[in-house]
Design a protein around this nucleic acid. Structure first.
Lengths: 224, 224
DNA sequence: ATATGTTTTAAACTATCGTATGAAACAACT
DNA sequence: AGTTGTTTCATACGATAGTTTAAAACATAT
C-alpha cells in the first residue's frame, strides 16, 4: 500500500478517519474549547480509537492546528482564485473597484454561509482569546501568498502606486475587512434579537468605495 | 470567634483569604479561562493552601460564580445609585434625558476604567462563549432589581407610559447598552491599531437621544 | 490553663487527562 | 500461502485535575 493511501472499508462513515477526526474535533473545539475537549471525546465522536489522534496527527495540539490549517488553505485559495478571476476577466488590467470588491467578497466568504459560519465563528472567537495556532502558520499559509497576489494585482490596476508603500495599503485593507469580521462575530454571539442581521454587502460597498478613493489619492500624491 | 469573623495575621497579604482567592481567581480565569486554570494555580497565586478553595467556596465552580457575583452586585448597586441620585436631585420628577443618561453611564461604568476593564472584558468574552454563571443569578442579582428601579423612575419621568409595555422599553434600552458593550469588547480584543479608541460618550449621547424620542413617541401613542 | 470553635496544612483520594505500547486485524503484493 | 506495511484496538503509563480528610495551628472565652 502506498504511503499516502486511504483505507476503504472503515466502520463509522464513508469518509476517511483523518477527515472524521478533523470534523469531530472542529465541532467539539468550537462548542467546548480546546481545554474543554478531550481526545477521548473526539475519538468517540469520530467513531474511532483514541490512539488514532496520535497516530494520524501526533497529538491533540497538532490536531487543533490541522483543523485550522484546513480553514486557512481554504481562505487562501478562495482569495487567490478571486484575484486570478478578476485578472483574467479584465485581460490583466482590472478596474480598481472590481479588484477590491472581488477580494473583499472572498475574504468574507466564510461568514456568508449562515449554517457553517457559527461553528467557525466560535472557533475564531476562542482563538482570538487564546492563541494556539502558531503565528508562522498563519503568516505562511495565508498572509504571505495573499499579500503578494494582491500586491501584483494592485500594481496592474494602479500602475502609479509606490511599491514601497503598497504593503501598508494592503494591511489597511485587510484591517478593514477583519474589522467587519469582528463586528459580525459580535453580532452572532449577541442573543439580543433587536439588532437586525449585519449586512455584509453594505460593509463591502463601503470598503470598496472608501479604499478605492484612498488608494487613488495615495497614487496621485506619489506620482505628481 | 464569631461565625463570620476574619483572621488578622495572615501570611500573604493584608487582605482576608477569601478576597485574595477571588482576586487571584479572577486574574487567572481572565487570562487562561476556566478549564485552563487549576485550583492549585489559584491557591498558589493567592498564597494559601489548596483546600482553602473548597473550605471557603465549596469548589472551583462556586468560586467562579462568586467572582462574577462580586461584579454583578457592583453593577446593580451602581445602577440603583445612579437612579436614586437622579430621582433625589430632581425632586422625584426627573427629566427623561437625565434619567436615561445617568442609567447609561452607570451601565457602562465598568468599561470606562481602562486599567481594570481589560480583565473584566476577557472574563466577559469567555462567559459569552461558555456560559457558566447560572442565569438565575444574573436575573436575580442584576436584572430584576435594576428593572423595577428603572420602571419606577420611568413612570415618574413619563406618567403617560403604558405600564404593560414598559418592560419592553427597558429591555430595548438595555439591549442598546449591551450592544455598546459588545462593540467595545471587540475593539479591545482587536490588535489592529488602525481603529481609533471607541468613544463611549458618543454612544451614550446617541442612545439617550434615540431612546428619549422613542419612549416619548410610545407614550403619546398610548395616551392619545 | 483548659476548653471550644475556626482556620490552615500536608497528604491522600479518585477521576480523568494526553500519550505510548504492543499485539491483533487488515489489505496488497510476491 | 506467506510476507510486508499500514491501520485499529485494548490497555497501561505517568501526570495532573478537583476534592476530601484528619491532624496541627490558632484565636478566643471561660
Amino acid at each position: 500500500m502506498s504511503i499516502s493511501g486511504q483505507k476503504q472499508g472503515n466502520s463509522g462513515s464513508d469518509k476517511p478517519v483523518q477527515d472524521r477526526l478533523l470534523d469531530a474535533a472542529e465541532q467539539l473545539f468550537s462548542d467546548h474549547g480546546f481545554e474543554g475537549t478531550s481526545v477521548r471525546d473526539i475519538a468517540s465522536a469520530a467513531g474511532c480509537n483514541i490512539a488514532a489522534v496520535n497516530y494520524y496527527f501526533g497529538g491533540k495540539d497538532k490536531l487543533y492546528t490541522e483543523v485550522w490549517r484546513r480553514h486557512l488553505v481554504q481562505m487562501r485559495d478562495a482569495r487567490l482564485h478571486a484575484i486570478e478571476q478578476v485578472m483574467s476577466e479584465s485581460g490583466g488590467k482590472p478596474a480598481l473597484e472590481d479588484l477590491l470588491r472581488s477580494f473583499a467578497n472572498a475574504f468574507l466568504g466564510p461568514f456568508r454561509d449562515e449554517s457553517r459560519s457559527r461553528r467557525f465563528m466560535n472557533l475564531m472567537a476562542r482563538e482570538m482569546i487564546d492563541q494556539r495556532v502558531p503565528v508562522n502558520m498563519f503568516i505562511d499559509e495565508v498572509v504571505k501568498p495573499t499579500m503578494s497576489a494582491v500586491r501584483g494585482a494592485l500594481l496592474r490596476a494602479c500602475p502609479g502606486l509606490d511599491e514601497s508603500k503598497i504593503w501598508l495599503l494592503i494591511v489597511f485593507l485587510a484591517g478593514q475587512l477583519m474589522h467587519v469580521v469582528h463586528v459580525k462575530t459580535m453580532f452572532e454571539q449577541s442573543e439580543i434579537a433587536e439588532i437586525p442581521a449585519f449586512d455584509l454587502n453594505e460593509a463591502v460597498d463601503h470598503i470598496v468605495k472608501f479604499s478605492a478613493a484612498g488608494i487613488r489619492a495615495y497614487a496621485n500624491g506619489e506620482t505628481k
